[in-house]
Design a protein around this nucleic acid. Structure first.
Lengths: 175, 175
DNA sequence: CGCCGCAGCTACGGAATCCGCAAGTCTCGA
DNA sequence: TCGAGACTTGCGGATTCCGTAGCTGCGGCG
């Protein structure tokens, strides 16, 4: 609540010309001010630009332009998140997948499926882990057995059906 | 973009007095209009109330009050979400945990740890799955080996370090 | 060395939005 | 039948959003 400006201008004097880095490029490299803005919006996605500006030491318009750029670049998105159970999706599962051949192409196929909420390539005894959100058991069964296991390159899968979601936060950097 | 009102008033005539259900209670039961509002905010968390009202067939003030209630109830939250790698958290992992004794008490202990972003009780070869967000390898190592494995009741753990985050959406209900 | 172009910030005014409040409507239960 | 509670509407004032113009610092280039 004590609102101390996080950084004076010219916080990170080096490379500032990488702004054309788009969402597929390598890390756009955020400076301290943008990080502070993100933290503000992680606390409240609807916080007014003027309030954010006061907190990070920038004018309202500057905050607005930076936020717009962060959104365009795909660095962050401002959205409503819910507990899926409350919204009518009764079955969720984490699925671990082993792949033979190109892992990334399988990952892309999974990404294209609307039921796959979360797709990540991992090291360990699974090559991929996928979070699946479904309406009921039949739906879940169809996605795992008919769609995922049918993908070329998928060697095996292991499912972990969700019993209870205990925690779900979005506060990175706001520790 | 065709904005058809989703439901006439009295969409869900039954129990409307469960509004004191707070964030720990059982499902607050959303009606079709609240669902439609959530969908709007999943597309853009900053969309003006008037625009939402036009889309779902409600006045601006009505939308505002329902959104406030949904936030107060904990049904949804409006936040900025990011790719942690971009924001400076270089190591993430999913950890599967086997527990002997009371699973829930272990889950509560994990929930209290700020590095645990996501805690869920599962059926399958793990009792719990936890997503961990860390700054570097040392940090990750400490959390897994010193903190998690030290919890009473934890029998074993298996880690899946993230190599690449392929998909991360928040579009439940907006299919 | 001076000029040019770019990117980011500030300033500012008009339009749109947010927010609280008072009053009307509907349903359900006593 | 009546009253309580929840939901909705309408409205006015303060606030916020948004586009634009001008300024500044910096790097590239002739």
């Amino acid at each position: 609540m004590h609102s101390e400006p996080v950084a004076s201008r010219s916080a990170d004097p080096k490379d500032s010309r990488d702004s054309r880095e788009s969402r597929n490029g390598t890390t756009p490299h955020l400076d301290a001010v943008s990080l502070a803005i993100i933290e503000q919006l992680q606390e409240d996605g609807r916080r007014p630009y003027a309030a954010i500006g006061k907190a990070v030491g920038l004018s309202e318009a500057a905050v607005r332009q930076r936020v717009q750029k962060l959104l365009d670049q795909g660095v962050m998105q401002i959205v409503a998140v819910t507990d899926p159970l409350t919204v009518g999706f009764r079955r969720q599962a984490m699925v671990g997948i082993n792949v033979e051949g190109d892992v990334e192409s399988v990952a892309d196929a999974l990404t294209a499926m609307s039921e796959c909420e979360y797709v990540v390539m991992t090291a360990g005894s699974f090559d991929l882990m996928v979070e699946i959100v479904c309406e009921d058991d039949d739906h879940l069964l169809e996605v795992i057995n008919r769609r995922i296991r049918a993908l070329p390159g998928v060697r095996s899968t292991e499912s972990f059906v969700y019993l209870k979601l205990k925690k779900q936060t979005y506060m990175w950097g706001t520790r």
